[in-house]
Design a protein around this nucleic acid. Structure first.
Lengths: 232, 232
DNA sequence: CGCCCTTCTTGAACGTGTTCAACTACCGAC
DNA sequence: GTCGGTAGTTGAACACGTTCAAGAAGGGCG
């Protein structure tokens, strides 16, 4: 099952080199322990021991304990994409598509609610490479934004031409807001978050539709100008 | 300068007891070092040493390093209230009052942008008592919400009767959003955050005014119902 | 086979936040 | 004044994340 050795092995990239198995072993062990015990309660020593390697070995593959979180990020994004596929195949109207994709995201995260809540603290730090806004997370982030692009592309909705290119990112931002709420959601099974989605989506839907009205054109433009200004 | 000893000293309350001076000394030292070196770079040992006390003594007054942040919270809130007073005295229209109060908040925080950004990570953790949504922060939070209540009370604006009671908290929530943006704002002097305030306030103003229109009544109610549902 | 170089692995050591058993300072009661 | 109890204070000890010098494993090349 070993891959052919890459001809040009870039120096700082362990991903294609020998230790790929070890890397995955450590990652999977960490994810399991995070789920079982929570993030703070899982020590690097415990991860190393359970994986049968030395502590320093974990640091060879992952720069810090926080960097293991980024693995979780990426993995969740992939699962989200997969879970959203049926919705994108089935639904045609904008509202149901958006709601479905949002629900799919929460579906994927639900088993990890306990520890994911804890780790989002790290994600909130602006200086951290783990921030969803950081350059280091741009991969998963762009994938997520593209997912919301697909929500639009495949839908029957007609959107204001100026709003259109900004909308995927705005929807992703709204999704971040949903997650922020979800993280703080103490209701059993995070029912409230579901209500948030079901309640907010029709509003967003209406808003997007209304944005085309001539009367609201100035407001639409004003909002879009503001957003463009604020973008980094 | 010593206060009269409180007659009924509640057991778990060091605030009114002898060590009040020490408490303040540690707090002030911590705040100074946080500003000088940043949060992560300031060790508890350094705080203790600079304050001339033992490490354990700091833990007698503050449960953890994070709890020192809550002091910063409370202090900032008081300063915010003071800085907002001139605006509340001067302005009468809703828009300028809101903008002024928001700017005042950022004014107060600006000198601490470097380290405040770092510490907001801790605030984002839902399980932490430091979260602005937590019960333990309810004091400063309520004070902040009341401040936005004053923005409304003193203004000439007429607000939808059903929206009115919810509005202060919603404005506070918007303020939290501004702070979240500010924390990530890398523009020199955080100019972008100022633009966000100046750009968003007119929109909020218009939205609040429009909420009274008969045509929009259903939407207003829909939004308010959703908010009421989502409240904890 | 022997050599060299890169990749991978190790675990002791460091600095950190935090805890805690022991100690001291103070104050009211008798 | 002495006693007793609470408030305040101490610093060594602990567990954790992280670093790093040292070594092992592997593979290409003569």
């Amino acid at each position: 099952m070993t891959e052919q050795p890459a001809q040009t092995t870039t120096a700082g990239d362990p991903a294609t080199a020998r230790g790929e198995q070890t890397r995955q072993l450590i990652r999977d062990t960490a994810m399991r322990l995070f789920r079982e015990r929570g993030y703070a309660q899982t020590t690097m020593r415990a991860i190393a021991q359970e994986a049968g390697v030395a502590v320093g070995n974990a640091y060879y593959y992952f720069g810090s304990k926080d960097h293991l979180i980024q693995e979780f990020y990426a993995q969740s994004q992939v699962e989200h994409r997969a879970a959203a596929q049926p919705v994108l195949d089935r639904e045609e109207a904008f509202g149901p598509r958006l709601a479905g994709v949002l629900h799919a995201g929460i579906d994927v995260l639900t088993p990890s609610h306990g520890f994911a809540a804890t780790f989002f603290k790290t994600a909130a730090e602006p200086t951290s490479p783990l921030s969803p806004f950081s350059a280091e997370s741009s991969g998963p982030r762009q994938a997520a934004i593209d997912l919301f692009g697909e929500v639009l592309t495949g839908s029957t909705a007609t959107v204001d031409a100026e709003l259109r290119p900004q909308l995927p990112e705005l929807l992703w931002l709204a999704y971040m807001g949903v997650i922020l709420y979800w993280v703080h959601d103490r209701s059993p099974g995070q029912t409230k978050t579901r209500q948030l989605i079901d309640g907010a989506v029709p509003l967003v839907d209406r808003l997007v539709t209304l944005s085309r009205l001539r009367v609201l054109r100035p407001v639409t433009r004003q909002v879009l100008d503001l957003i463009r200004t604020l973008r980094h």
